[in-house]
C-alpha cells in the first residue's frame, strides 16, 4: 500500500475534470458552492479582488476558516500557500486539506525557489503562463496546472493568452524531431524527459485548468473550448449579485460548453457580474501573473 504516489496525486486532479472549483471565504459560501455543483472549493480568507483592494502582504488563510469549510462540505477542500513557503504548505497539509495551491495570488515568500512539491503526500496545483513554466512546476512535483490569468480582475484576456500559448507550444513540441527536443528543453528551461512526454502524448502530463479572470458562464465555456480540463472561479461568484444562481450557471456552462442555447438560458437574470479591471490599468507591481517563474 502506497500513499502520495504520482498516480494518486495526479488521479485526484483527473477526478476534477469537467468541473468548477470555487473560491469560498466561509462555511456558508462553501455550502452554496457545493449545492451549485462545484467539484471542489478553495478555502480563502479573501478572494483575489479583495486582496488587490486591501494591499499589503497576503498570506495563507487562518486555519479556522479552512477547518470550518472542511467540516461542512464532502467535496475536496483546497487551500493556498505562498510561493516558496513550504511551512505554510506543511501546516495546511497537517490540517488535512485535499489539495494545495502554491499561488501567485498570495505574496511570494521566496523569489528564487518554489516549494519542492515531491516532498508532500498532498498534491499541488500551480499556475503557469507558458509551457516552460508548466513543466518546471510539474518537475518540482505539481500534479495539476492552471493558467495564471490575472486573478481578481474579472478580465478573461490573460487566461486566454496563457491557455492559447501553452496549447500552441504543445503543438510545436509535438511536431519537433527528437533531436530538436534537446535544444528546446534548454530554451524552455525544462527537463528533457518531461518535454519528451509532451512530444509523445500531445498534452501536458497532468490536468490543466483555466484560472485568473473567469467572471461569467460564457467565460467558463470559452476556456473549455480553448482546451481547459475545467475551471477555477475566484472572485467571480461571490462578488456577483446573486452568487447561488451565478455559481449554478457557471457549472452548467462548463459541463455543456458547446450548447450555446443552454448558455444563453443560464446567463439570463443572474445579475451583474463583478465589475472587472482593464489589464493595461494595472501597474507592473499589481500584476500577479508575473510572480514566480
Amino acid at each position: 500500500m502506497e500513499t502520495g504516489t504520482s498516480r494518486v496525486k495526479r488521479g485526484m486532479a483527473e477526478m476534477q475534470k469537467g468541473g468548477v472549483i470555487m473560491d469560498v471565504m466561509n462555511a456558508e459560501q462553501a455550502k452554496i458552492a457545493e449545492a451549485a455543483g462545484a467539484t471542489a472549493v478553495m478555502a480563502l480568507e479573501r478572494v483575489p479582488s479583495d486582496i488587490r483592494a486591501a494591499g499589503g502582504v497576503a498570506r495563507m488563510a487562518d486555519p479556522t476558516i479552512v477547518e470550518e469549510v472542511m467540516k461542512v462540505v464532502t467535496i475536496p477542500v483546497m487551500a493556498k500557500a505562498r510561493i516558496g513557503h513550504f511551512v505554510e504548505a506543511k501546516v495546511l497539509e497537517s490540517l488535512g486539506v485535499d489539495y494545495l495551491d502554491e499561488s501567485e495570488v498570495l505574496t511570494p515568500a521566496d523569489e528564487v525557489y518554489h516549494i519542492d512539491k515531491r516532498e508532500f503526500t498532498v498534491p499541488f496545483v500551480c499556475g503557469a503562463k507558458d509551457l516552460g513554466e508548466a513543466l518546471r512546476r510539474i518537475g518540482e512535483g505539481a500534479s495539476m496546472i492552471r493558467t495564471k490569468g490575472e486573478p481578481g480582475t474579472g478580465n478573461i484576456v490573460e487566461a486566454v493568452r496563457h491557455m492559447r500559448l501553452i496549447n500552441s507550444q504543445i503543438r510545436k513540441i509535438t511536431n519537433m524531431s527528437k533531436d530538436e527536443l534537446y535544444a528546446e528543453a534548454k530554451n524552455l528551461g525544462v527537463a528533457y524527459d518531461l518535454l519528451l512526454e509532451v512530444h509523445q502524448n500531445g498534452k501536458l502530463p497532468v490536468v490543466n485548468f483555466a484560472a485568473g479572470g473567469v467572471a461569467t458562464p460564457a467565460d467558463a465555456a470559452l476556456m473549455m473550448h480553448l482546451g481547459a480540463d475545467g475551471v477555477f472561479v475566484g472572485s467571480g461568484i461571490f462578488k456577483s449579485e446573486y452568487p447561488e444562481k451565478f455559481a449554478r450557471a457557471i457549472v452548467e456552462a462548463t459541463t455543456h460548453y458547446t450548447d450555446y442555447k443552454l448558455i444563453a438560458e443560464v446567463s439570463k437574470n443572474i445579475g451583474t457580474p463583478m465589475k472587472g479591471i482593464e489589464i493595461s490599468k494595472l501597474t507592473a507591481a499589481e500584476r500577479m501573473s508575473d510572480r514566480g517563474w
Partner: peptide
Amino acid sequence: SRNAFGRQRESFET
C-alpha cells in the same frame, strides 16, 4: 460509505 478511507492524504494504490 463516502470518503471512507479519509481525505486525499490517505489516498493510496495497491
